[in-house]
Amino acid sequence: MPLDTSAYSLALLRVDGRRWNELRRIHAQIRTQAAADGSSYLEMGHTKVMCVVNGPSEPGPRRGGVGGTSAAGSGGGGGQSKDAEVAVSVVVAGFSSVDRKRRGKNDKRILELQSTISSALGASLHTHLFPHSTISISLHVLSLDGSLLAALINAATLACVDAGIPMTDYVAACTAGSTSTYAANDESADPLLDLNHQEEQELPGLTVATLGDSDRVAVLVCESRVQVGRLEGMLAVGVDGCKQVRGIIDRVVRDKGRRMLQEGTVEKGVGLEDMDLD
């Protein structure tokens, strides 16, 4: 499906009617699953993901090597290490995209996503407070329309906040792209924020995740060919987008907290541990 990029230069509107610096609608909820320690549901446009966090808890029986990595990076040995292990599992539902592709559990793309999320959150979570334990994050992709990694990272961050795991700051992610293809060397190319599936297929793009309000990049993944000169513009737009995303998810957390106080689920000053589920 060829993307009609010529329309962009005329009206400066993208296929879904957004301008270059507009995010898609982000809708998020936390505390969606009563049984889990932490949970979240996040929509970025038509990309919908659900996240459940359990832990920190004692490591269960050993699973296959790749899913979980300790935050220290190469330090293996599951629950043996000084840091908590962040075990991530990503399940892409068969009905999530149009072409209903079966993705095996050992799909290398999924394994790479898992390892990226684990190591990105591992750097923000205070894993050193929970030695010999495991924080398991399971993510379910319900609907897929671009910016998958970004949505997964945001959902996982929200769920970790909900689970009350101490962390430095939010890890917020979004994608950025460029209107030129790699071959064209035109200077007029505009950077784009938050790509949907169609744009992701046609245009070069990257996923950025930053820590909190800073310009510090935790994840930077670019999987398409692009001129090196484009990178700066895309990165700048991406980092800026991350700040917007951070604002949105921060509001979600604060709104939920306020509502919980109003509903009387928690009293002011009560520790989060004794909090009942609403």
Binding site: G73, E112, S115, T116, I117, S118, S119, A120, L121, G122, A123, Y182, L206, T210, L211, S214, D215, R216, V217, A218, V219, L220, V221, C222, E223, S224, R225, V226, Q227, V228, G229, R230, L231, L235, A236, V239
Partner: peptide
């Protein structure tokens, strides 16, 4: 001067610059 891929897969955040 074409980037084929960039992979900073997590780890400690680094300044964009």
């Amino acid at each position: 001067g074409e980037i084929c891929q960039i992979a900073k897969l997590g780890g400690t955040p680094v300044e964009a610059v």
